[in-house]
């Protein structure tokens, strides 16, 4: 007696009798899930609820010919100064700088996505490069989308650079997708310490000059080091003008603790 229990079906993915043939029938790509949900376990996934490994302040200052973006090289694990030599200011392309504050893993993640976009730009080979205002807008969309899915990237970034005409742009996007642009932006503690310090010095009728901007960066990073407990006396500065876009440093804060000898009573 014939045993057909092991026989393969004759016709897979074909039309049911009386139906039309569908060229993609049965071979449809599975619906694309949002990437962060594709690894869902049997009980779902837990979204992060706080930043774990964090970078502190990022400070950006716009001047008449470009922008400066500065951040110290510390990535903390809670109150532990865990990674002390990590650059947090990145050059994205010849027109854009990115300074990352907040959860450093999320910064690395978004940086990878941005780098991929830059590669796509280069592949087109048509001379079109992304401009800082465009990246800022794109980040707003991505971050707002993530927060709407109740899975935000815990980051606070500074985007700076120059556009095609050499006009400087400096903006800030945070984990909810809130964004603004100004002549000075800061994240983390810098928003409380450095921002007022820079605004105080702003001439009403003109932009900062390069010299003013650099000295303000130097001064602000010193204040941040003295006052912010999650900081180091070492920082890098990204500079972006029409002709040059690069990361300088690391620089040392000029620290002076002689006054400490006089501090008593604690």
């Amino acid at each position: 007696m014939m045993n057909n229990s092991c026989a393969q079906p004759m016709w897979l993915n074909g039309p049911s009798p009386g139906q039309f043939y569908n060229f993609m029938g049965g071979n449809n790509a599975p619906a694309q899930l949002p990437r962060e949900l594709t690894t869902a376990g049997p009980y779902g996934t837990k979204h992060s609820t706080a930043a774990i490994t964090t970078g502190s302040s990022v400070l950006g200052i716009r001047f008449d010919g470009g922008v400066l973006v500065a951040a110290d090289t510390l990535v903390s694990y809670g109150s532990l100064a865990r990674y002390q030599n990590i650059e947090r200011v990145f050059q994205i392309n010849n027109k854009i700088l990115l300074g990352g504050g907040g959860d450093f893993a999320d910064i690395q993640s978004i940086k990878r996505s941005i780098d991929q976009k830059m590669i796509e730009d280069q592949c087109c080979n048509d001379g079109v490069v992304m401009k800082p205002a465009e990246l800022s807008s794109w980040l707003t969309r991505v971050l707002y989308n993530r927060r709407c899915r109740m899975n935000p990237l815990y980051i606070d970034v500074v985007v700076g650079g120059v556009d095609e005409a050499g006009k400087p742009f400096l903006g800030n996007v945070d984990l909810r997708g809130r964004a603004y642009d100004d002549y000075v932006v800061a994240t983390g503690f810098g928003r409380h310490l450095a921002l007022p310090l820079v605004r105080e010095r702003k001439p009403k009728d003109r932009e900062f000059t390069f010299e003013e901007a650099t000295s303000l960066i130097r001064e602000s990073m010193k204040v941040l080091y003295y006052r912010d407990t999650r900081s180091l006396p070492q920082y890098t500065v990204g500079i972006c003008t029409a002709n040059d876009c690069s990361i300088k440093g690391p620089f040392k804060v000029e620290e002076n603790w002689t006054f400490a000898e006089g501090v008593t009573g604690y």
Binding site: C124, D126, G127, V128, M130, K131, A133, E134, S137, W138, R141
Partner: peptide
Amino acid sequence: KHSYSTSYPISRLVY
């Protein structure tokens, strides 16, 4: 325009 707040570069659109 929604993503980047600027208009599509023509060369890339045609490409």
